[in-house]
């Protein structure tokens, strides 16, 4: 076996999820190569070469890859996958990974296995269905297996210690498909750690009552050096933007400490956080389902309990 992991990055730094994918790829057996497609992305290729467990880095730098458009990325990944005859191509189960893996599958007539949480052997994988309420064991039959893996299910490979050679990735004859055009982007600027990588996550739900009240959670998160998240109900109600959403349809997180505030614990939210090492729930409704998964449950009015907690930590 040999696996090509498609690195996720912002042209400056590798995403932490990429390190988890390297670990997952290692479990398949055989060499693990990292593909960095970007624009002005030399620092990423450099960082990729230092990741422990990576045997080679393929680096394709072209303006077509500046914004990770699915059409261009799919074509670019295919060029490397075919040139080097990998048995597996792996991406991260993020919105970026899911954006292109299906397209790549259709273009190569391959059926990806998404959201892999366990590598059983080189063609057998476990993945959740129904918001994590069922775990399916899947045997893939395609000659080239396309996978996306959940970063929370695999430890991060050490970011240093490796010394892989960096070579030029084979680029397609026409890297720019011209199908869609990047106009602009809005990246939430926060001094807090990334939701997917934070050691502590403080999430709010509909019980927060409005967006302004999230300031209370931000204060608690800052005290703990953590990130702020939200339930789908809070996003639906317009309290906070969608990128904070934790759940089946948002981000899947597994921090050391997850503090759920004013969150009832709908199935779809639990599937996004139930692998956290320690879950704390603060809710005034003692019947809320969140308490069935909480290591520590506090039945209290969040508007007094949260400031008190922030003060006493």
């Amino acid at each position: 076996a040999s696996t090509l992991v498609v690195a996720e990055h912002n042209n400056k730094a590798l995403s932490p999820g990429t390190l988890s994918a390297v670990t997952a790829a290692g479990k398949i057996g055989g060499e693990v190569h990292l593909l960095v497609l970007g624009s002005g992305s030399a620092p990423v290729a450099e960082a990729a070469s230092k990741v422990a467990g990576v045997a080679k880095v393929l680096h394709g730098d072209h303006p077509a890859y500046a914004h990770f458009l699915a059409e261009n990325t799919s074509r670019g990944v295919r060029a490397s996958a075919e040139a080097h005859k990998y048995t597996h191509v792996m991406a991260i189960s993020s919105m970026a990974g899911k954006n292109f893996i299906g397209r790549l599958g259709a273009e190569m007539d391959l059926a990806p296995v998404t959201d892999v949480i366990k590598v059983v052997d080189e063609s057998t994988f476990e993945r959740p269905m129904y918001a994590g309420n069922a775990i399916a064991t899947v045997t893939a039959s395609d000659p080239l297996k396309l996978l996306t893996v959940r970063p929370t299910a695999f430890d991060k490979a050490p970011a240093t210690g490796g010394s892989a050679a960096v070579e030029a990735a084979p680029l397609p004859a026409e890297p720019e498909t011209g199908l869609s055009k990047f106009v602009s982007e809005s990246v939430s600027s926060s001094a807090r750690p990334d939701l997917g990588a934070a050691r502590v996550v403080v999430s709010g739900g509909r019980g927060m009552k409005n967006g302004e009240n999230f300031a209370m959670l931000e204060a608690l998160a800052d005290k703990l050096g953590g990130a702020v998240g939200a339930s789908r109900a809070a996003v639906d109600a317009g309290y906070v933007p969608n990128e904070l959403q934790v759940g089946q349809t948002g981000k899947v997180v597994a921090p050391e400490l997850y503090i759920a505030v004013g969150i009832s614990g709908a199935i779809q939210h639990l599937s996004g956080m139930k692998d956290s090492k320690c879950i704390v729930a603060i809710n005034k409704d003692k019947e809320a389902p969140i308490f069935t998964v909480a290591d520590y449950g506090l039945v209290a009015d969040l508007f007094t309990a949260v400031p008190e907690l922030t003060k006493k930590l």
Binding site: T137, L298, A305
Partner: peptide, 28 residues
């Protein structure tokens, strides 16, 4: 025909129910 054969479907591992804490001090 499915390319990825589902051979087994199971419940996720259960999470043990935790403890109720009485106060913020207790939680801290």
């Amino acid at each position: 025909a499915p390319r990825n054969k589902v051979t087994n479907v199971t419940d996720p591992p259960p999470r043990a129910a935790g403890a109720v804490v009485e106060s913020v001090d207790d939680l801290v």
